[in-house]
Design a protein around this nucleic acid. Structure first.
Length: 303
DNA sequence: AAGCCAAGCAACCGCATTGCT
DNA sequence: AAGCAATGCGGTTGCTTGGCT
């Protein structure tokens, strides 16, 4: 341990220049063994006394982000991704705060996930990743999809645990076959889908593109945080046609779960028979999702 | 096989905050 | 209360790796 001489902490092997760059196995071993014996903290002293030619800061980072025994490695699960999206929508770039809610994950890992995966989507959508528009897109399209994945994976796990005779019927297995009515592309006429929504009478699918929903969602009451069903139902809208769009399809790639997916051409959006006015349409749409949207799970792609 | 490029991630840097003297 | 060191946090950099030509 350190000795104090003339108010200066003296440790063996503290001479020489500080190292930078990737850590070697030897350095990792030194740090791990030292912390196992003496514990964390007092990083500058630790760095010197452990015989590491690193700054205390560097040692701390290496330990917290890589060497600590409870660090979880590997891909983020759909549940973790969902949590990150939700918490980031609440708190923004408070990586450390977010990381506290994901045991075994570091703020650095979450930050990298956000920058590499999430911001990539924003770029592809031509939306600023810190804009309300993108936040809405995440809430309306991405989170619902993750919720589906979470449900699917837990259902699959339950089915596996129950054995083949007691397999559980997925929650989305009995939705009706839709009748999708063709409408003009919102890319050609961005306001078309909203207009179509106001004129629709019943049983018609009219939303072509997520940006339409983003526009609508400016006025919706954000129940997304408390109503899982709302996620699923809004996602129906997304799935309905946007899956044809490459950049949105890329969101799929972020979720490394099983092969189950939804066929956009067979998802149904049903409107109630009541007359829809544009003004209160958004509010009604988002608050009645549970009742008015139905979807049909296609199951394994290729069916 | 070699070179190029982009994505992902580990690590660094600077600033802010906290705690101790 | 002030000064200083340690620690924490978020932004950024640059290295590694894998895919493509």
């Amino acid at each position: 341990m350190a000795k104090v001489a003339n108010n200066k902490i003296m440790c063996p092997g503290e001479d020489g220049e500080l190292r930078k760059g990737p850590w070697t196995l030897e350095e990792d071993t030194l740090l791990t063994h030292y912390i196992a014996r003496h514990g964390e903290g007092r990083w500058n002293i630790l760095a010197k006394c452990a015989g590491l030619k690193r700054t205390g800061k560097s040692c701390r980072l290496r330990w917290l982000n890589y060497l600590k025994p409870d660090i979880k490695r590997g891909n983020l699960t759909p549940q973790e991704q969902l949590l990150i999206l939700e918490l980031h929508s609440k708190w923004g770039n408070r990586w450390s705060k977010i990381a506290h809610h994901l045991p075994g994950r570091t703020d650095n890992e979450i930050k990298n996930y956000w920058r590499t995966r999430v911001q990539k989507q924003a770029r592809q959508l031509n939306i600023e990743s810190n804009s309300k528009k993108f936040l809405d897109a995440v809430r309306c399209f991405w989170i619902p999809r993750l919720l589906q994945k979470v449900e699917q994976t837990s259902a699959a796990a339950a089915a596996a645990a129950a054995g083949p005779q007691n397999s559980i019927t997925p929650k989305f297995s009995n939705f009706t076959v839709p009748s999708v009515s063709p409408v003009s592309s919102p890319l050609e006429n961005p306001n078309q889908a909203v207009e179509n929504l106001s004129s629709v009478t019943s049983n018609q699918s009219v939303i072509n593109h997520p940006t339409d929903l983003i526009n609508i969602s400016d006025t919706y009451v954000p129940q997304y945080m408390t109503s899982p069903n709302a996620y699923v139902n809004t996602n129906t809208v997304y799935n309905n046609q946007v899956l044809l769009n490459d950049s949105y399809n890329d969101m799929e790639g972020l979720i490394s779960v099983g092969s189950m997916s939804y066929d956009s051409s067979l998802l149904e959006c049903q409107m109630p028979d009541a007359n829809w006015g544009c003004d209160d349409m958004a509010y009604t749409l988002w608050n009645n999702m549970d009742d008015i949207w139905q979807l049909r799970e296609i199951g394994e792609r290729g069916n």
